[in-house]
Amino acid sequence: MKHQYDSDAATTLYFLKEYDLIDEFKLNIEANHATLAGSSFEHELAVASAAGKLGSVDANRGDLLLGWDTDQFPTDIYSTTMAMMIILNQNGLAPGGLNFDAHVRRSSIDPTDLFYAHIGGMDTFAKSLLIAHQIIEDKVLSKFVEERYSSHTSGIGAQIMSGKVGLEEVEKWVLNEKNPVLQSARQEMLENIFNSYIF
């Protein structure tokens, strides 16, 4: 369908809340449906997980150059490692799992190709599990993220988040302060760290 009522995670979560279904369902996120919806696999997983609603995963991959559901087996270690970080950070998928909603190419005609395809998908996710587990254990990324938002743990940041101050109090606080000091978001450094766990 051109406009699907469950086109992405945020749309589906809104629908479930609007119609009082949110307590009965979780989301089954498919990698290729994420890319078809103009988003990324990890974004869809993160949106579902942040809502406490990541239930299961259709583990496959699409092709950004093709506008249809190619349902290929997952082999992209970057994407699957990001997925495993989100899954581990929410303490797993059970009772859900990783379902290979994927098929071999039209030219892969032998039954043995079905084994190669699944072995590739399983090994990619297994390697990703090992990498993601180590990144999380070492807290290299989580420490940085925690630090990045640390201005909310005390002072005006904590007061804003706890609802203790409104626009008037905030304006008063700003007028008494100097200009804010910019901090680097360090994306390239973090990408290098992420890579260092992969290769």
């Binding site: 899954i87 797993g92 998928l93 799992g97 990783l98 379902n99 290979f100 909603d101 098929h103 996710f125």
Partner: peptide, 17 residues
């Protein structure tokens, strides 16, 4: 236990290329 892999019946056994 972490990965809980499943095979999709439709693609793997019904798919005909």
């Amino acid at each position: 236990e972490h990965l809980r892999f499943a095979v999709a019946w439709w693609h793997t056994f019904m798919g005909d290329g």
